[in-house]
């Protein structure tokens, strides 16, 4: 295990989460053992105070599951999550409520993450009331203040979610989270549903708020360009595991893990002169119901060798704050090599 540098705000160790797979009636009658979806397997991750940690990976690799486990929407099977030293997974009742004041989540879908029947004012006021954050008299002023914080006019308070555009709804989601004055925000695909021009507006808002409020941000996304722009460090996930973590410039300039390299190569470059003929990676993502033995990436990895089949690579430090889970980078290894 690597030593934690800096001031670790969130410390995730060995986090594992499975879901029971849907099973047909016939199989159930035949008494077949129920399969499980391995959404997260032994995830280790540290989020430092004040940083933006990007989390990338293909669809179904467990990014949202990780985010949801961190805010206690899903119970974890195994592992630990510590927030400023406190054991998050065992919190209950009032403690959990206090945790949620410190760690908030913003959801992907600007169309479904707001109750369609509540006006924006009601949404914000409810948060303030439940957590007794403002006396009744200060309420309206605070609502206006929150709205202006995210760049919406005060009159927006009287409107229902359907009266706003996608980008505006995402602002409402941000205002709702900020109402609790959190220290840490988990943003799951915050801008994925938005057009590039609107994306830029919301990204700017996030940057500005982070500056102003000193927020720690977990930025879950699949847009590598945005992740690169926003993150201080980036974690790459594959089939429920973290396969590489590194400072952003290191990750994008010297990606180590074969999967990270493929992912970066596959992202379409904006320069038409910069075209490549061969696909970056062949084969499809294996099903999380049947995670390959050893290294989860070995079925698509161009460098896979026999050790990759039998032994699971650990996430190891390779210097410059970079951690990689690949046998090619195991200093103790005798076999293989690049």
């Amino acid at each position: 295990m690597t030593a934690v540098e800096g001031d670790a705000l969130l410390d995730v160790r060995g986090l594992t989460k499975t879901f029971p797979a849907p099973q047909g009636l016939v199989d159930r009658w035949r008494g077949k053992p129920r399969k499980v979806v391995r959404a997260l397997t032994d995830v280790d991750l540290t989020v430092r105070r004040g940083e933006t940690l990007g989390i990338v990976g293909e669809s179904g690799c467990g990014k949202s599951t990780l985010a949801r486990c961190l805010v206690r929407l899903y119970p974890a099977d195994r592992g630990s999550v510590r927030y400023a030293g406190e054991d998050v997974l065992s919190l209950g009742g009032d403690e959990l409520r206090r945790y949620h004041r410190r760690v908030q989540m913003i959801f992907q879908d600007p169309f479904s993450s707001l109750n369609p029947r509540m006006t924006v004012g009601q949404v914000l006021r409810e948060v303030l009331t439940v957590h007794r954050l403002r006396p009744r008299e200060g309420m309206d002023a605070r609502v206006t203040e929150l709205l202006s914080l995210v760049g919406l006019p005060a009159e927006a308070a009287g409107r229902l979610p359907h009266e706003f555009s996608g980008g505006q709804r995402q602002r409402i989601g941000i205002a709702r989270a900020l109402a609790l004055e959190p220290e840490c925000i988990v943003a799951d695909e915050l801008v994925s549903a938005l057009d590039v021009s609107v994306q830029a507006q919301v990204v700017n808002l996030l940057l500005e708020l982070q500056e102003k409020l000193g927020l720690t941000v977990l930025f879950v996304a699949h847009d590598l360009r945005l992740v690169r722009h926003l993150s201080h460090r980036v974690a790459v996930m594959y089939l429920g595991r973290v396969v590489e973590v590194a400072p952003t410039n290191v990750l994008f300039e010297r990606p180590a893990h074969p999967y990270t390299r493929a992912l970066l190569a596959a992202a379409p470059h904006l320069d038409p002169a910069h075209r490549v003929d061969a696909p970056a990676l062949s084969g499809e993502l294996p099903s999380p119901l049947d995670v390959p033995s050893g290294c989860p990436f070995r079925t698509r990895c161009p460098h896979a060798f026999d050790r990759c089949v039998t032994e699971r690579p650990e996430l190891l430090d390779v210097g410059a704050g970079q951690q990689v889970a690949c046998h090619l980078f195991d200093p103790a290894a005798s076999a293989g090599g690049r």
Binding site: F107, S112, L114, N115, V127
Partner: peptide, 26 residues
């Protein structure tokens, strides 16, 4: 399962409130 109901939970609302105020009206 909707995101607004999950959001309500993350906002620290009690289960009763999530059910009666957010889910049931819909």
């Amino acid at each position: 399962q909707t995101e607004y109901a999950q959001a309500a939970r993350v906002l620290g609302f009690s289960p009763t409130r999530v059910l009666l105020r957010h889910i049931l009206p819909n």
